[in-house]
Computed example of a mutant assay.
Amino acid sequence: MSEILPEPVWRAREAAHRTRVAAWTEPHLRRRAGNEAHPVIDFLFTYYSHRPARLLRWHPGPGVVLAGEAARERLAWRGYVETSDGVTLDPAEFTDARRRTAEFVRALLLATAGREPRLACFGLHEWAMVYRLGPEQVRHSARRLRLGSAGTDQVVETQSIRCSHYDAYRFFTADAVPLNTLRPTREEQVANEQPGCLHVGMDLYKWAYKLDPFVPSELIADCFALAAEIREMDMRASPYDLAELGYAPIRVETPAGRAEYAAMQAEFARRGAPLRRRLVDVCDALLARSGGPDRAD
């Protein structure tokens, strides 16, 4: 049975979502118009493929009907259909390809949730991405390295690199690759990912928008908000000097810095768990509505 939202109710939710998301999208769009870049926050709009305009759009999610004449405006958007009660997501748009995506996302998230967080990587993936590179070759070349090139290389060479996330590992320099104790691959992603990984926490945003518009926009925004905080921590622990932007370093080259990093990592793993569960629940609802088996993990 569908939930019917009166127009004042869904209009209020839509406005609240747009206001919340605009706090992130508007500064990014201003920077982009001025040909400027922010080395921390803009990552969420450049590495991830969800456009600001799509993030701003509010969708109620599956099983919700929007009542009122204004809802008919959504018929110009792909993915909506009119019923006798109002406008709702078109089940026909949940294609076989989307179903396969939902099945993969569900399997990945459940596998990740079933593992204990591992908290000993200390964010050294960012250091491995600049290992033995010249100053002009590093990704954020406008920002100096806190310890300089030689000091950064020494950290990589004297610490144990334990990156389990393929999409971080694939950006390691050629010289850093053999220093990693693991060899993550795309094919083994479901088997490797664990909730302590900062990139796994950020990727909750990716798995949410991959199923847009079939994921409630509030959930996508919640995942984005967590990703923004994680990204800040990720770059504070990086080798870059971002003090002039207001980011105090987490000095993972020291025992105290590593302890600080692990504590924050554990907290983000805790906060990511309910978002992961909510995404699994959405996948279950979508798969059930598309005629799949009833799943109760």
Rank of each mutant, 00 (worst) to 15 (best):
A70C: 13
T112Y: 01
W127P: 00
R99F: 00
F94T: 05
A142G: 11
L182P: 02
S141Q: 12
L119N: 05
Q189V: 10
R132I: 08
E73C: 15
H125V: 05
W77E: 15
Y80G: 14
M129N: 01
L145T: 07
A102W: 02
R139V: 13
R100T: 11
T95D: 13
A120M: 04
R118N: 01
A70M: 09
R115V: 06
G148N: 09
A176L: 11
G114L: 09
A111D: 05
L89E: 05
V138H: 00
D167N: 11
Y166D: 07
F171T: 11
Y169C: 00
E103W: 00
R74C: 06
R115C: 04
G123Q: 02
M129G: 01
L89Y: 01
R139P: 00
L119H: 02
V155E: 04
H125F: 07
A70V: 11
D167H: 11
G123I: 03
Q154Y: 09
R143M: 12
R132H: 10
R118C: 03
R144A: 14
R118S: 04
L75A: 13
L119I: 11
E126R: 03
Y166G: 09
T158Y: 02
L198W: 09
D153Q: 08
V190L: 07
P178R: 08
D175P: 02
A142Q: 11
R144D: 07
A111M: 04
S160Y: 00
Y80T: 15
R78S: 15
A168E: 06
A128L: 04
T185A: 05
V177P: 00
R146T: 06
Y80P: 14
V156Y: 00
A97S: 12
L147Y: 01
R78E: 15
V81S: 12
S149P: 04
S149Q: 14
R115H: 07
C197S: 12
L124V: 03
D153V: 08
P117D: 03
T101N: 07
R186D: 03
E136V: 08
R139I: 12
T112F: 02
R99L: 09
A71S: 15
T185E: 10
T185R: 13
L182C: 10
Q154I: 05
N180R: 07
R143S: 12
E82I: 14
A70F: 09
R144L: 10
P91F: 13
R183A: 14
R170Q: 13
R170K: 08
T101Y: 03
G134T: 06
V156G: 05
F172T: 03
L179N: 07
G79C: 14
E103R: 08
R146F: 11
P91N: 12
R139Q: 09
R78I: 15
Y80C: 13
R78H: 15
D85H: 07
T101I: 13
A128Y: 05
V155R: 09
V156S: 08
A150L: 12
E157V: 09
L145K: 08
A107L: 14
A107N: 09
E82M: 12
R100G: 10
